[in-house]
Nucleic acid binder design. Structure first.
Lengths: 237, 237
DNA sequence: ATAACCAAAGTGGTCAGTCCACTAACCAGT
DNA sequence: ACTGGTTAGTGGACTGACCACTTTGGTTAT
C-alpha cells in the first residue's frame, strides 16, 4: 500500500556517500578526505553534522582523524571490527565460551583454505616460528611467535573477512584475560604439548592435507579453550 | 625518559563510560540514556561532543535514537555487526568468495553446536520449515522458510557471537545480490536438491550426529556458493 | 463523564559562529 | 645547515539558537 518512509537522517546520508565513494574507487586506503569545512560546504550541511558522520567512521576504525592534519581513510583495517564486536559482546553479556567457539570455527576454516593457498615463503615463516616457540628462552618471544603463527595461517587463507574477525576474536580474548599465554602456561608443562600441536599443524600443511591440518588445529583449539575456560572459571570464584 | 602522552579524545572517554556502565550492569538492553542535555551537563562537556559519542554507538547499532523521545540501548542486537562488517568488506574490496567462506565456517560450527544443544521444539520448527520449503507454492514463502531454517540452527547453537556474525554474513550476501534465492533457483530444478540437503541436515541433527550434520551442511554450503559465485561472475561480464 | 483537541515541555536533529590545540611549511637569523 | 618563530589550515570542543517530533496534561465540546 504505502512505501516505507526512510527517515534518512543527514549524517546517515553522509556516511553513505563516503561509503559509495569508496566503493566507486574514488577514495582508497590512506587517502585524505576533504577538510570538514570544505565537506560541510560541498554537502550543504553544518560542520557538526559532518563531524558526527566522520566520528562514527573513526570509531569503527575506517577513518583516522589527526588534529591539525586531516581525516584519512584508514590504511590498516586489521582492528576495524574489534570495537564493534567487543561492544556487542559486552552488551550481550557474552560468555568466554562463545569467543572460543567463534575462534575455533574461523581457525578451522582458515587452515583449510591456507593449506590449499599457502606459499613456500609462508611455510618457511611457520617453520621459523615453530623453532622460536620451541627454543627461545624468553616467554615474551615465544608468546609473540605463537600469535604470529596463527596470524600467518590466517593471512595464507587469503580471506580478509576471516582474518579480520579472527583478529577481533583473539583481541577479545586478550581483553578478557590479560596475557592469556603467560597465565595458562606459566606453571604448566603444557608448553610441550602446544609445541607438538603446532608442529602437527605445520606438517599437515606441508603435506597439503587440509583435513589433517584442520584436525590438528581442532586438537590445538580444544586444548587452548579448555585452559581458558578453566582459568576464567577460577577467576570468578 | 618521558612517558607517551595519550590524547584521549573526549568523545572516546564518553563512549568508554557508557560501555563501562553497561558492563557494570547499570545500563541494560532497552534502557533509556539520560537526555543529551543532561549528559552534557553531568559530564561537563558540550552537547555536540556527547552527540558525537552517541552517534558512533548508533551507527554500530548499540543505541537507538528516537527524535522527541530519547536515546536507548538497543533491544535487538541482531544487526549490530552488519554495518561494520559491510563497511570493512567494501573498503577492503572484498570478494563474494570471502563471504561464502566466512559463512561456511560459521554454519559448520553452528550446526555442530546446535546438534548437541537443539531442543525438541527447535526440531519441530525445522521439520515444519522443511515442509514449507517442499510444498509451498509461493517462492516468497519458501525463501522465508529457508532463511528461518538457518536462523533456527544458529539460534540453537546458543552462541550470540556466531549467530550475530552469521546474520551479518547472510545480510552481506543479500546486499551484494538482491533476492539471492530467486535469482539462483528461479530457472533451476536445483530446488529439489536443496530440499534434499535441508532434509539431510535435519535428519543428522535428529540423530544427534554432529559430524554427519556438519558434513550435510558442508554439502549444502558448497552447493549454494557454487551458484552465488557463478551468478556474480556472470553479472560482471 | 467522555472524547477530541490543543498548548506546553522535553527530546533529538541541525545549524552557525567562535575559540583552542595542533601540524606543516615557510622564512629569517644565526 | 640548523634553530626558532610566524602563519595558514586542520581537527577538537564549545555555545546558543532553531526546528521537528513525541508525550503529557489540561481544556473544550459533546
Amino acid at each position: 500500500m504505502f512505501t516505507q518512509i526512510n527517515s534518512n537522517k543527514v549524517y546517515t546520508q553522509i556516511i553513505d556517500q563516503i561509503k559509495e565513494s569508496i566503493a566507486r574507487g574514488e577514495l582508497k586506503k590512506g587517502d585524505r578526505l576533504p577538510s570538514e569545512r570544505v565537506m560541510s560546504e560541498q554537502l550543504g550541511v553544518s560542520r557538526a553534522t559532518v563531524r558526527e558522520a566522520i566520528r562514527s567512521l573513526e570509531i569503527m576504525g575506517l577513518v583516522e582523524c589527526v588534529q591539525g592534519e586531516g581525516n584519512f581513510i584508514a590504511n590498516n583495517l586489521e582492528n576495524t571490527l574489534v570495537e564493534p564486536v567487543s561492544m556487542m559482546f559486552i552488551l550481550n553479556q557474552g560468555k568466554i565460551r562463545e569467543i572460543n567457539e567463534l575462534r575455533r570455527a574461523l581457525e578451522l576454516e582458515a587452515i583449510k583454505l591456507a593449506t590449499a593457498r599457502m606459499a613456500p615463503l609462508g611455510l618457511k615463516k611457520l617453520e621459523e616460528l615453530c623453532r622460536i616457540m620451541e627454543t627461545s628462552p624468553e616467554e615474551a618471544a615465544r608468546a609473540e611467535a605463537d600469535k604470529q603463527f596463527h596470524y600467518e595461517i590466517a593471512k595464507a587463507s587469503e580471506n580478509g573477512l576471516i582474518m579480520n574477525i579472527l583478529n577481533a576474536a583473539a583481541t577479545l580474548i586478550e581483553l578478557q584475560i590479560k596475557d592469556v599465554r603467560q597465565k595458562i602456561f606459566a606453571n604448566e608443562k603444557s608448553n610441550d604439548s602446544t609445541n607438538t600441536q603446532h608442529r602437527q599443524v605445520l606438517e599437515a600443511i606441508r603435506e597439503k592435507d587440509a583435513d589433517k591440518a584442520a584436525c590438528a588445529m581442532q586438537t590445538h583449539m580444544d586444548h587452548i579453550s579448555k585452559f581458558i575456560e578453566a582459568y576464567k572459571e577460577s577467576e570468578n570464584h
